[in-house]
Design a binder for these strands. Structure first.
Lengths: 254, 254
DNA sequence: CGATGCCTTGAGACTGTTCAAATTAGGTGG
DNA sequence: CCACCTAATTTGAACAGTCTCAAGGCATCG
């Protein structure tokens, strides 16, 4: 995995300048924090922290209901810069927790503003990244609202696989999946028990393998088929498996 | 309802200048289109249109699966400016359709850019509005993923009521709800049949009334209670019913 | 070696779905 | 204004998917 997956990603999307790249790199080294697994970076109700750039590890954006039910609304992986414009609200409406031990770079409002002023190409890249994150949340609404457990889980797994592949964190058809089934269940809106059974079914059907925190997409075609996967919403530079070219350079022609 | 609900809303959030307001008003009159009920403004797969400012009527952002299942991921009401940065992607990943006859103002990329350059306060307001829209989508993930039908529908109804109240489109405890149960079902991730039964239950329990396309929140406390409603995510200037002040002026102190 | 956290299994209950039909409401032409 | 047509809501009954609760197995870690 490259030192800074965000830079990698932006570079693929926009023709970010050497200087913009450098500035971003510096920003991501100025104030680095580490968090243990299962600790909160901030919680619902907190007053807005600054933006975070996830450097290493996995995190999740989530909300809790009074009775303890929890729903994860986004998985954050290295290179994700989240809550970029967080200072616009007076109170956070969601929490973010580390799913694994993580490293993040804290980035202050004025640092971002300065960066954006100076390097418009980079700014464009950052906005684009925010758009993609929210497009993913949008797709989750569809996934949870209209797909049943089997397809839903398959869809989720394939999505995360593609996102990881995009940051170079895959190894052929496999990737790490350092997440408890509890967390995964909270992401797809299922019970841990039922999620477990669905995963077994997926394994049994030969779509995936899953052990020791490693996920193998054994049969990508079957996975895409099972779930009617259309990766447009990920706006990946590379091929999304659907055969049609997306995002990247072509986006900027418009 | 005021001529331009967006301006109203921004005014409440930020100290938008007279000129910025004027510029926005002009933008919203330059290229006004009308659409019939149940027609698409644009569809998944289209190349990005320009941004729309909804002036009158209701619209919905949605996605379809191959087999005809549909999921609405957002309701758009007058004053909503959507897909602001749409030109960043090469292909739309969702569709938007009119739920009622609507009027929208089409706004071109460079018009927005110019506006933002010239009136930073207005720009801030626009970004804030985008944030709120995506915070709502986030809440929908939670609502659909972790609440059961009864609470889920109650939550949805109360949310839309608050949003309408925010733009002055309510009349005491009631508001228009010009939506078929089919559409509502597609929004909350239920079957029309089951949604219908849930609505009956809510009426029977005296939480709401619903006829002739009008919704009455008969017992707001009960509705909030049934659903554990926390309106923080709406970032409304006014009271959200939770008793705690949010958004608006205080947001800008940070 | 015991404790804890996580994954797995089982059986029964319940929420929400499916399919099909009946009723009501709304709109249009005669 | 009525007759008709279509779209929308409502009802019923059987069914399936998912949940609940409870217990067992297996690691890992102190």
């Amino acid at each position: 995995m490259p030192l800074n997956p965000l830079v990698e990603r932006l570079r693929r999307f926009t023709n970010i300048s050497r200087e913009g790249e450098q500035a971003l790199l510096e920003l991501s080294q100025r104030d680095v924090r580490e968090y243990d697994r299962h600790t909160d970076l901030f919680k619902e109700g907190d007053k807005p922290p600054c933006a975070h750039l996830l450097l290493d590890g996995w995190a999740a954006r989530y909300k809790s209901l009074e009775d303890g039910r929890q729903q994860i609304s986004a998985f954050l992986i290295p290179g994700d810069l989240f809550d970029l414009k967080v200072y616009l609200v007076s109170e956070m409406d969601h929490s973010v927790k580390a799913l694994t031990p993580i490293k993040t770079a804290l980035i202050q409002k004025d640092e971002i503003d300065a960066l954006m002023d100076e390097y418009p190409e980079t700014a464009k890249g950052l906005f684009w990244q925010q758009m993609v994150l929210s497009a993913i949340e949008r797709e989750w609404v569809v996934n949870i609202g209209r797909r049943r457990a089997y397809e839903r889980v398959a869809h989720w797994l394939y999505e995360i696989y593609l996102r990881l592949r995009d940051i170079g964190a895959t190894d052929g058809n496999s990737c790490r999946l350092p997440v408890t089934q509890r967390d995964l269940a909270d992401a797809v809106g299922l019970t841990p028990v039922h999620l477990n059974r669905v995963l077994q079914q997926l394994r049994h059907d030969g779509l995936i393998e899953l052990d020791q925190g490693r996920l193998v997409i054994v049969d990508p075609d079957a996975v895409r088929g099972a779930t009617c996967f259309d990766g447009t919403y990920l706006h990946l530079g590379a091929d999304d498996g659907s055969g049609r070219p997306t995002g990247a350079a072509s986006a900027l022609r418009a």
